[in-house]
Design a protein around this nucleic acid. Sequence first.
DNA 1: GTGGTCTAGACCACG
DNA 2: GTGGTCTAGACCACT
Lengths: 128, 128, 128, 128
Amino acid sequence: MSLITVDLRDRKQLYEQLVDNIKNLILTGELKSDEKLPSVRSLARELGINPNTIQKAYSELERCGVILTLPGRGSIVVVQADELKREQLAALTDKLIQLSHEAKKAGITGEEFITAAKTAYEGGTEHD
Amino acid sequence: MSLITVDLRDRKQLYEQLVDNIKNLILTGELKSDEKLPSVRSLARELGINPNTIQKAYSELERCGVILTLPGRGSIVVVQADELKREQLAALTDKLIQLSHEAKKAGITGEEFITAAKTAYEGGTEHD
Amino acid sequence: MSLITVDLRDRKQLYEQLVDNIKNLILTGELKSDEKLPSVRSLARELGINPNTIQKAYSELERCGVILTLPGRGSIVVVQADELKREQLAALTDKLIQLSHEAKKAGITGEEFITAAKTAYEGGTEHD
Amino acid sequence: MSLITVDLRDRKQLYEQLVDNIKNLILTGELKSDEKLPSVRSLARELGINPNTIQKAYSELERCGVILTLPGRGSIVVVQADELKREQLAALTDKLIQLSHEAKKAGITGEEFITAAKTAYEGGTEHD
DNA sequence: GTGGTCTAGACCACG
DNA sequence: GTGGTCTAGACCACT
């Protein structure tokens, strides 16, 4: 059985859940470079969801260079945890930029923004 | 003529644009507590969009206590700029908590998180 | 100046506010049987609202026998406080019947209903 | 076929009928937590009303935490019967507090109020 | 298939 | 005039 899961009650789209999930497995070292991912069909069967959804997740992962899909031979991880972490940090910054735009429009100062960020990181319950 | 506008080319939903727009007018003091908003129909005519869309925006604003709608008498602002700002700041912190959860799962430290927040707020428009 | 007021920010309809207001003045003895009410026009001017609204309130009060309007001579109170109280009690019971119907549909027992009523009367902040 | 119905002759708004109806199905155990609701379109077809009206009802139910709507995946019940009953009881008490305010202003005593409540619940259909 | 948004145009009760 | 609801029919993104 795989470590990959989905939560049908989560608002996030299923394929996005899969993408995030697999990225996290790489970041935590549970999936390493060159390791093989479960096949689209087997994972779909295991999770009880549509193979198209798995396919979409794998395509997205390939698009951003995290895995490599070799037709007929399955998919393997091709990115190192530290590379991925840098990308994730960039993605986080992007999201923070979006938030800062909204914040500026709402008249929130840089100081308030940073204070809120600190509170959020420290106060937020550990891992959800 | 009103200060309220919408951008048909913006991918953001029209009614959300209206909600944000009106909240911002309150935050900047251009709309004050007890002031009357344009009627659903007149604003629809002015902006060239459907009255139902205005209605939806006004309903949302009433639901979160920003305006008060009196059937047959129009809608008035019932929240002070400073109250609204406090609420907006709380909403921002909520979103930052979500982001911090993702960040933690990706192994991003508090220091990295705060640095990214600073960069985001100061940098402004990097990837956008 | 009259004791009669309206609150433009109240959700209740203006004419209903007037009706309730005048009934309460009678119940508290501030308006007694045979006393004269202000004229439609003068009250409208004083409150800054449309005479039609006052007219509607007076008509409603006449319809339920609280006042008598004599064309050209104004309106006078024709009901005693104790009669009015009996009517108000009947009206209250009607509203409670509506609520009890909803309550029954929601599976709320008689005991729970009465307990809630006691809590409401005792706990409710004094006069709003 | 679903248990959900609407009465076109009822003066109550259709979307409110739907909201109450679905809440009651949960309270009576005919709909349980995690169960799927009919899709917006299929229910609209079945009841012969417009999908927008169903949409409005479902949005309202989601807003107050009774159901969870997952775009593209349908809507599911997310509240237990007992939680919902507690909420309904709280809502009832709120309405009773409003009534008790009016009652106090009309000089109705606590004893009279409770007696009226008992009569109302037991009597059932006097003036209705 | 699913929900979500938007338009066009209608009706009602109320002020 | 006002807001509120409803219908009919369209489009989008996503499963």
